[in-house]
């Protein structure tokens, strides 16, 4: 079972190694948006307020 898993993952490794960086980039983008667009700390909210309203993020 373990051998089977290892064999299968090594055959997929070339496509995984191409897609993994892209998934990391997407996750980085989501993190940036979570902080800039959605996080509700009062300081962050105050600073990002006008842009959040203008870019259609749920605010307040």
């Amino acid at each position: 079972m373990t051998n089977n898993t290892i064999t299968r993952s090594s055959t997929n490794s070339s496509s995984m190694s191409r897609i993994l960086p892209l998934i990391m980039a997407i996750m980085l983008g989501v993190s940036v948006l979570a902080v800039a667009g959605h996080a509700q700390s009062p300081t962050l909210h105050g600073a990002a307020h006008d842009t959040r309203h203008a870019t259609g993020f749920p605010c307040h």
């Binding site: 980039a25 997407i26 993190s31 940036v32 800039a36």
Partner: peptide
């Protein structure tokens, strides 16, 4: 913040 938000969107889009 506008630049930060569009860099975030840019990461996903690109």
């Amino acid at each position: 913040f506008s630049m930060a938000i569009y860099v975030g969107y840019g990461l996903i889009l690109s």
